[in-house]
Structure formats: structure tokens, C-alpha cells
């Protein structure tokens, strides 16, 4: 399970509408925003990094007023344990 601390940057004057539209994404928790409203502090939760990336893309596609989603912290401590347990057979690397 991944939990991020992220910043969603929105177009000026759109923070309230974006806030409402974000309610459609239960994986996103709004924690606060800047005085201008253009920077929203959120958590995004996803099963793995791939899901996180596709979720972020979906959010941006669904809400055009979002300019950018930037991650400051990604908590993937469960993932690390899996990574450390991997062997090379877990990676797809066919010989030439």
C-alpha cells in the first residue's frame, strides 16, 4: 500500500470546484490548501506505484483545472519488504 503526501496545483479561481470534483476519488484526502487556493495538500492512496501513476493521470484527465500533481513523499515501506525479498527470477529479463 502506497500513501503519498502530494501537492495538487490548480488553475487560479478553481480550488472550490476542484475540491468538489475530488470527492469522486475516495483515494484522495484533502488535508489543506494554500492561501491562494492554487496548491492543495493531499494524500493519495494506491496499491502500488503503477496504480498511483494511473490514478494521478485519471484525476488530471477528469479535472482539467488541475495543472499538476507532485509528490513530496511516498510511503511504500511494504513495497520495500517485497523488493528485498525478490530474486532475479522475479524480473523479466530474457536473454538475447
Amino acid at each position: 500500500m502506497i500513501i503519498t503526501g502530494s501537492v495538487i496545483m490548480v488553475m487560479p479561481g478553481t480550488s472550490q470546484s476542484v475540491e468538489k470534483e475530488l470527492l469522486a476519488f475516495p483515494q484522495v484526502t484533502l488535508q489543506g490548501k494554500s492561501d491562494s487556493g492554487m496548491d492543495m495538500i493531499v494524500n493519495i492512496e494506491a496499491d502500488d506505484h503503477n496504480e498511483l501513476e494511473s490514478l494521478c493521470q485519471k484525476i488530471k484527465d477528469t479535472i482539467p483545472a488541475i495543472v499538476d500533481i507532485g509528490h513530496i513523499y511516498i510511503n511504500f515501506e511494504d513495497e520495500i519488504e517485497k523488493i528485498q525479498a525478490r530474486t532475479w527470477q522475479d524480473y523479466y529479463a530474457p536473454n538475447e
Partner: peptide, 28 residues
Amino acid sequence: IKLSAAGFAAAALNISLPGKSSGDDGIV
């Protein structure tokens, strides 16, 4: 973890998250 992660993000933009912990207690 969520509050701590949000705290890291808020600190980057100098945004205060009133009434919420921004420590790193949840990050082990």
C-alpha cells in the same frame, strides 16, 4: 502516516495544516 506525509508536503510549500500533526510519528 497520512498526516505525516501531508505534513512533509505542506512544509515544502510553507503551508500550515492547522490542528493536525505534521510529525513523522507514523513513518517507521
